[in-house]
């Protein structure tokens, strides 16, 4: 027995099937397509930032004592006097060395990689919590709703979900802050931590973290919840109409087994795609939620960088987000092909 076969021996047959060469070829083909896509997006955003305005003018505009000469020196220092193709080539060269440059404005020229590292974790925490809660809540509700189509429960679930998709997330954020933070005073407003340790509830850092996390998570959960509920419901309705469900029922299986074992597993396939795409976009953050809650995340950082024309920071976050999205996409495609036996990789 070769090593490969020995390893494969431990996995169920379907995994063994997928690990063999067609998948490798498939991944390679996807990668070949993703690479030009990645650079295409970089070029697009790079040119756009350079057209968006002059950061030096923006930085010095309010200071009357700065001379034209000083401005010119600053422009030279940032390399903005160079031709566009040269700037882009320099950016790429540094990118390959893992250097994304220094931020113009934030914390006096901190390296962009450090900034992203600091902010990404907060975004990740918030998004993961929201994704977890929305899936845990949405899947049972969607299933129940589909099982009793057109019942009172179903109608109220679909109506609430529809209204949920119509409320702007920042509006929901503002109202939530208003009610739970200002009027009731149950939760703190803004930031991810209390500024002074003396404010920690029971002196615990973790509790403080969770306490700050509660409101933004609730809002983001509600925003992600509605589409997932509708997705699970419609997918479940479709599956319950299939012949094999009828066959399962006819063979005398209990309703529970039919719904949760035979139907749900198939109904969750589109949900996997949704989660996959969401996962990629996740690190882009929810710029709006983060801004409303003054949350120190990547999304808010990007909004600030764009407003301040902080070129290296805009480009750095774009690189980061694009990479995450593309990798998540690739993983989703592979998972999809693996869990859905109808899809075969040629």
């Amino acid at each position: 027995m070769s090593i490969k076969r020995k390893v494969l021996h431990f996995f169920p047959t379907r995994v063994a099937h997928a690990v063999q060469s067609p998948l490798a070829k498939y991944v390679l083909r996807r990668l070949l397509y993703l690479i030009p896509l990645f650079f295409g997006i970089l070029i697009l955003v790079f040119v756009a930032t350079r057209l968006a305005g002059d950061p030096v003018k923006l930085m010095t505009g309010l200071n009357p004592r700065i001379t034209a000469e000083a401005r010119e020196r600053l422009t030279q220092y940032y390399g903005l006097d160079q031709p566009l193709y040269y700037q882009f080539a320099k950016f790429l060269w540094e990118l390959f060395q893992g250097n994304l440059g220094n931020s113009y404005a934030l914390r006096g020229g901190t390296p962009v990689t450090t900034l992203i590292g600091d902010y990404a974790w907060e975004t990740f925490k918030l998004q993961l919590a929201a994704l977890f809660f929305s899936l845990v809540i949405a899947i049972p509700i969607g299933v129940m709703s589909a099982r009793r189509q057109y019942s009172k429960l179903d109608v109220s679930v679909t109506t609430t979900s529809l209204v949920g998709t119509c409320i702007p997330i920042f509006y929901m954020g503002i109202v939530t802050i208003l009610i739970f933070s200002y009027f009731l005073g149950w939760f703190p407003y803004g930031q991810a931590h209390s500024l002074e340790p003396s404010r920690y509830p029971f002196g615990s850092y973790t509790l403080d973290e969770l306490w700050h996390l509660a409101l933004p998570t609730a809002v983001l959960t509600f925003a992600t919840l509605a589409p997932v509920v509708l997705l699970v419901r419609s997918s479940m309705l479709e599956i319950l109409r299939q012949d094999y469900i009828l066959a399962a029922r006819a063979s005398g299986l209990s309703e529970r087994t039919v719904v949760y074992k035979h139907a749900l597993r198939n109904a969750l396939i589109p949900v996997v795609t949704y989660v996959g795409l969401y996962f990629g976009g996740m690190l882009a953050g929810a710029p709006i939620t983060e801004t409303v809650f003054n949350w120190p995340g990547v999304g808010r950082l990007y909004v600030e960088a764009t407003a301040k024309l902080d070129f290296p920071l805009i480009m750095g976050i774009t690189v980061f987000i694009t990479l995450m999205v593309l990798v998540a996409n690739l993983i989703t495609d592979i998972t999809y092909a693996y869990i859905d036996p109808r899809i075969r990789i040629e």
């Binding site: 397509y33 896509l37 295409g40 997006i41 697009l44 955003v45 756009a48 930032t49 057209l51 968006a52 305005g53 795409l277 990629g280 976009g281 882009a284 710029p287 709006i288 999304g299 990007y302 909004v303 764009t306 407003a307 024309l309 805009i314 976050i317 774009t318 987000i321 694009t322 999205v325 593309l326 996409n329």
Partner: peptide
């Protein structure tokens, strides 16, 4: 493939950059 670019990328962020360009130009 072009359509996919627009589908895959969180467009709200890129839109912000382009809005900045539009208001400048």
């Amino acid at each position: 493939r072009i359509t996919e670019i627009f589908l895959v990328i969180p467009f709200l962020l890129i839109l912000l950059v382009f809005l900045k360009v539009a208001t400048t130009l």
